[in-house]
């Protein structure tokens, strides 16, 4: 596999270029965002904005903290498995070119299982989006495409890591390149935007004593 100079170029130079492009787009997005005025309560605070921000950002690891995830625990479980699969798949695109990870080794088998689970969750989420009227109503083509893209990405990863075939590696890394270039413009970039929303949510409602409530009822 590694003797293929074209594949090596795809896995290294092309990936670095795609990654740099992605980083630049994100940087531009963050700069645009930070140029906007900030919002912070000027009133005498009841709670602790910093504690609120920490609790808000940690919310993702606390399914019990929010009614919607508490009552839809399977949805949270799916979310956790899906995103774990995404993280492991992306990690493998870094580890494979460096030779740290080889198809067929124990870690790659773990990643293949994770990608298989991620694929199943992705298909289920796609079906949910298509069949539930209230979700269909809010779905844009990008919502469907992003899910489908990740499902195809998982499939190609399973193929590549499961077999180690050269063609499979080409497909997997071409998709990785497309993924890196497309993601900053798609809904998948929520992992860059949502921490900002969560931060402001935490600062505002922490300061007002709604989340991360002060132990005394009044101050």
């Amino acid at each position: 596999m590694m003797e293929d100079g074209g594949l090596r170029f795809l896995m290294e130079e092309v990936q670095y270029m795609a990654l740099s492009f992605m980083g630049l787009v994100y940087l531009a997005k963050v700069i645009w965002f930070l140029k906007k005025p900030t919002v912070r309560d000027k009133a005498h605070l009841k709670g602790d904005p910093a504690k609120g921000a920490v609790v808000s950002l940690a919310n993702i690891f606390m399914p019990w903290a929010m009614e919607s995830t508490r009552t839809h625990w399977y949805f949270y479980l799916e979310f956790a498995l899906f995103h774990l699969a995404v993280a492991l798949t992306i990690l493998s695109t870094f580890l494979i070119p460096f030779g740290v990870m080889e198809p067929g080794d124990p870690f790659s088998k773990v990643v293949v299982v994770a990608m298989a689970v991620g694929f199943v969750v992705g298909v289920r989420r796609l079906l949910r989006r298509i069949t539930k009227p209230e979700i269909r109503l809010i779905s844009s083509p990008d919502d469907y495409f992003s899910l489908a893209l990740l499902d195809i990405f998982f499939l190609s990863g399973i193929w590549a890591l499961g077999t180690g075939e050269r063609t499979a590696m080409w497909v997997f890394f071409i998709l990785t390149t497309f993924f890196l270039v497309y993601v900053p413009f798609s809904k998948i970039s929520h992992y860059i935007t949502y921490p900002f929303a969560r931060w402001y949510y935490g600062v505002n409602f922490g300061g007002r004593g709604v989340i991360a409530r002060p132990s005394r009822a009044f101050r």
Binding site: S68, H72, E134, I135, S140, H190, T193, Y194, W199, N204
Partner: peptide, 21 residues
Amino acid sequence: MNRLLASSLAACVHCGLCTEA
């Protein structure tokens, strides 16, 4: 358009968990 509004408009992933709320 401030940071709170911009992040709130940009961050939604249309998961629908708000629906029953």
